[in-house]
């Protein structure tokens, strides 16, 4: 019997995450400092929210298990199937795009002028996406990064990172 789908597995994963997170929030709320009474203290709302998320987590976990999410995971969390997921064209593209953004935000911005960082990011991303011809990518990247920096810094007088 294979009466289950990827969605059921994602419901189950979310359910388990919420169970753990709900327990953590409830615990954290109970252990926050009490000033006058617990009701007006900083831990009260996290405590209530933890209980709500735990309840929603239990519902999601139950739905996920009942609809076959666990069986789906059991069948698909195997070396070759996981490898197939991580080497799938769409997954790879998104992961690379995220990595490029991360390098731009954490590695380039703040270490060099914003326009230079932006130009490097645009060149790398557009070359990776094969957005257009190589010489057009260079022109677009240089012009766009200079224009963005100039317009925001001097025209709108907005501080650049």
């Amino acid at each position: 019997m294979t009466n289950y789908s990827k969605k059921d597995a994602s419901d189950l994963i979310m359910g388990v995450f919420l169970d753990i997170f709900g327990i953590y929030l409830t615990y954290a709320g109970l252990h926050m400092k009490v000033f006058k009474t617990f009701l007006d203290g900083p831990g009260f709302f996290p405590f209530v929210l933890g209980l709500i998320l735990l309840t929603l987590g239990i519902i999601m976990t139950t739905v996920g298990i009942r609809s076959g999410g666990f069986l789906y995971l059991k069948e698909n969390v195997k070396g070759h199937k996981m490898l197939a997921f991580f080497t799938h064209e769409e997954t790879v593209r998104v992961l690379i795009l995220i990595a490029m953004m991360a390098v731009y935000i954490f590695g380039l911005i703040g270490r060099m002028h914003f326009s230079v960082a932006t130009c490097i990011y645009l060149l790398a991303t557009m070359f990776y996406l094969r957005s257009t011809k190589w010489w057009k990518i260079i022109i677009i990247s240089v012009v766009a990064s200079i224009m963005i920096s100039f317009i925001f810094q001097y025209f709108f007088k907005i501080p650049l990172p």
Partner: peptide, 18 residues
């Protein structure tokens, strides 16, 4: 869109920072 979307990223960065 493959040209437009990457150009939007620095704009979002400025929007978040400013």
């Amino acid at each position: 869109r493959k040209i437009l979307m990457p150009i939007i990223v620095p704009l979002t960065v400025i929007g978040a920072y400013a």
